[in-house]
Design a binder for these strands. Structure first.
Lengths: 234, 234
DNA sequence: CGGCCGGCTTGACTTCGGTCAAGGGACAAC
DNA sequence: GTTGTCCCTTGACCGAAGTCAAGCCGGCCG
């Protein structure tokens, strides 16, 4: 694990604020490993004896259903961790994880880490904070699925990718459109149509590059939908 | 706080395994309070200086949207806790909470409790486990919203209420149907129609009593939907 | 160069769930 | 008893998203 990797891990909110030596010793022996696209990291129901920190690339956490469908709970990238929750409950992963873009990961052994958490209250708090964030992110996902249209969900996703809070921007879609579709709880066909509908909000696409005319406008659309423009009702 | 209440709190997974004296001292000064139906406990964005444990009744945790709609993240009852996550992040509640059936609650002050967590690794682990469970429950909700029809979601909800894993059962709906509808991410009208559709799966309703002909069959329906009965295909 | 393959888009059609409106039934107040 | 009100159900209608199928396009390999 070289210096850059260590920097990423220290940047991870999980280890934020801890000094590099501490983290290094904590992760001693957990060398980063390269994983190729498509590789399964674990399946739902597997014994949860490790969790992961992403150095780069993208990993999908999901649950396959009896029929071909699947529910996507998150897609993680540099500095993020996943699989921590499982080690505090039954010891079984409640979902599966698969590399979707070539990735370098650190696998942390649960038992070693748990001991460490037990002895280090600050690390425990970081852990609690990390899980709070996952919780928060899932709440956002539930909210989106319950009350937003597919076009609104896409709008919010694009806003979250935008480098600026207002004005024009160009973003690159970080992974396949079909994965984005699943991530947003829709079919690839519906994602295409959602892009078409967002054209009216100043969104243009070209392959995996997306041009946003006005991020502020797009955010508003994501929250309130296509307002009914009842400008007359003074 | 009388003996029965203390027993409930000790039964809470959050405090599972801790001895009553420890819990009692931990919650010292936090007397249970009665809350009437409709009362708001906190709004989204409020400073998160407390969390709650339910002694009885029902509390809805939700996020209102700009337009009249709302997303429901959970409905909690005896022995469950909510609002713990907020104290480990920004200190603002990411959702609102409202009493939906007359309830008795214990409000725990975050700062006192946080200190306690800091000094008590076992309590920290209970906390982590509690949040893992919330996480797990939200994952189930995301899964349901992403890939199940409204009738399937209702089927799974009914199964979760059933006292037995198989065979016939009668369950009482614990709160208003319109709240169940929101909890399952649909409108009241759709809930009615979902009940109609489940009649084919041996479900009969009479007010807030629901008769389930076969819990096992209902569970299967909740997972795979109305199978296409293609019995012909060799 | 040419052909294939996988990912994406588009179109036609269906189905599900939301919307709007009407009506029923339990229950409380008068 | 009567008249509300509130909650739930039902029906007619409509729009959003899924399904199925065809076609496009770019990348890869021969």
């Amino acid at each position: 694990m070289d210096e850059k990797d260590l920097k990423i891990v220290c940047g991870t909110r999980l280890f934020a604020g801890l000094d590099p030596e501490a983290v290094s010793s904590l992760l001693h022996g957990s060398a980063p490993r390269q994983h190729s696209k498509g590789q399964m990291l674990f399946e739902q129901g597997d014994p949860a004896d490790t969790f992961y920190i992403v150095l780069d690339g993208w990993v999908k956490v999901f649950r396959p259903s009896v029929m071909g469908d699947e529910a996507v709970f998150g897609v993680f990238t540099v500095g993020e961790s996943f699989g921590e929750a499982a080690m505090f409950i039954q010891g079984q992963f409640p979902a599966a994880a698969q590399v979707v873009e070539e990735a370098r990961l650190i696998a942390v052994h649960s038992d070693v880490f748990r001991k460490r958490v037990h002895n280090d209250p600050d690390l425990a708090f970081e852990m609690l904070a990390a899980m709070s964030r996952h919780l928060h992110s899932l709440m956002n996902q539930v909210e989106q699925l319950q009350i937003r249209s597919s076009a609104q969900r896409l709008a919010q996703f694009l806003v979250s990718l935008a480098p600026v809070p207002l004005g024009a921007a160009v973003v690159a879609l970080p992974y396949d459109k079909s994965l984005i579709a699943h991530r947003l709880g829709m079919k690839p066909e519906s994602l295409s149509r959602a892009f078409v509908r967002l054209r009216a909000q100043g969104v243009a696409t070209d392959g995996n590059r997306v041009m946003l005319g006005d991020v502020g406008q797009l955010r508003a659309y994501g929250e309130t939908g296509p307002l009914r423009e009842r400008m007359a009702s003074h």
